[in-house]
Write a protein that binds this DNA or RNA. Structure first.
Length: 324
DNA sequence: AGCCTACCTGGGTC
DNA sequence: AGACCCAGGTAGG
């Protein structure tokens, strides 16, 4: 099958950091072929890049291709997903000028894009994320798709599923089923939130959140069971186009205390007051797209990328930094 | 309003 | 092996 091409340099888009940086949990990288396989918009994609292009293949889709000429539609979906209309190097330049730490981080972590994701997948993925490891989050998201999504297609012996609709997840028996699948206490949050979302209007409700001011959308989201300040910010930032939203998790807290707000060092957990202090600090620093900027720092802080870095630069045993 | 703590589970570490 | 600890937090006290 032929690869379609979209002009886009590696400086503008780095697939590794963008797809494997904890924004979406549905992308897999094949080292041998240098190809990413993943799912969004009920479509299975293969992606790769050369120095000048992002390349893609559509492996299967449940979307109605008759509506537009097929290739155009898929290209639009992809450009939208990666927000290719934003010229990233301009923003990197701006953020670098404002912040030394960013300037340092962006040398290795160039081309980190904020994906424009679907709210339903985003919301339930991040309910799973609380107090959890990225590896287990990925497993849980795949379980949701396999058990409650639709089959999209099959190739190389693997079956690919779409992310389930809220109507599926709101069913009462879901809670006990998810408990049995190892979701722990998140099982209840998933079922209850799904029911609330349907009750409040589903798609239309998400649309209204997108049109609201960031702070209002955040408060609305926090009415859902299992969604607190941090996950609400993830959803605002990643699927509701509120790019000033800035999720403060353990990583971001560490970065902030270490580099900007030393009086916050050594706290056991992040209180709501600290939470907004940290968010506001980054917003003051980077401006109205602070959430995107902070994601670059977040990537730089992820352990898997640091280990990559050490292997590449040293080829020696990784020195582990110990905190006391 | 602001600070505790229990909570499911499994991967990592010693 | 087995006991910790910890992970992109949140609800309920």
């Amino acid at each position: 099958m032929a690869w379609h091409k979209i002009p886009c340099s590696r400086r503008e888009l780095q697939l590794l950091g963008t797809l494997n940086g904890g924004q979406s949990f549905r992308w897999e990288y094949n080292k041998e072929t240098d190809v990413w396989t993943g799912i969004f918009s009920k479509t299975v994609w293969k992606l790769r890049q050369d120095d000048e292009n992002l390349q893609y293949q559509v492996m299967g889709s449940l979307l109605n291709k008759a509506s537009k000429s097929g290739s155009d539609m898929f290209q639009n979906l992809l450009e939208n997903y990666f927000r290719l209309n934003y010229k990233l190097s301009d923003y990197y330049k701006k953020w670098s000028e404002k912040d030394e730490l960013f300037e340092k981080a962006c040398k290795q972590f160039y081309g980190i894009r904020m994906l424009y994701q679907e709210p339903v997948e985003n919301l339930f993925s991040f309910i799973c994320s609380q107090n959890n490891h990225i590896s287990r989050i990925s497993t849980m998201v795949e379980k949701l798709c396999k058990h409650y999504g639709e089959k999209i297609c099959e190739f190389d012996g693997v079956t690919y599923f779409s992310f389930p609709d809220v109507d599926k997840l709101k069913q009462p028996q879901i809670e006990s089923e998810l408990r049995n699948l190892g979701f722990g206490y998140r099982a209840k949050f998933i079922q209850k939130s799904a029911a609330q979302i349907v009750e409040w209007g589903g798609r239309q409700w998400f649309k209204s959140l997108q049109e609201m001011k960031y702070k209002d959308a955040r408060l609305e989201l926090m009415k859902l069971c299992g969604i607190g300040p941090k996950v609400a910010d993830c959803i605002c930032l990643m699927s509701l186009n509120h790019l000033e939203a800035l999720p403060v998790d353990t990583h971001v807290y560490q970065i902030a205390a270490q580099n900007y707000l030393p009086h916050l060092k050594g706290k056991k957990n992040v209180t709501e007051k600290m939470y907004s202090e940290i968010g506001d600090h980054f917003r003051m620093l980077y401006g109205d797209m602070a959430g995107w900027a902070h994601t670059v720092l977040f990537c730089a802080d992820l352990k898997k990328f640091q280990q990559n870095d050490e292997q590449l630069s040293e080829g020696e045993k990784p020195k582990k930094k110990r905190k006391k």
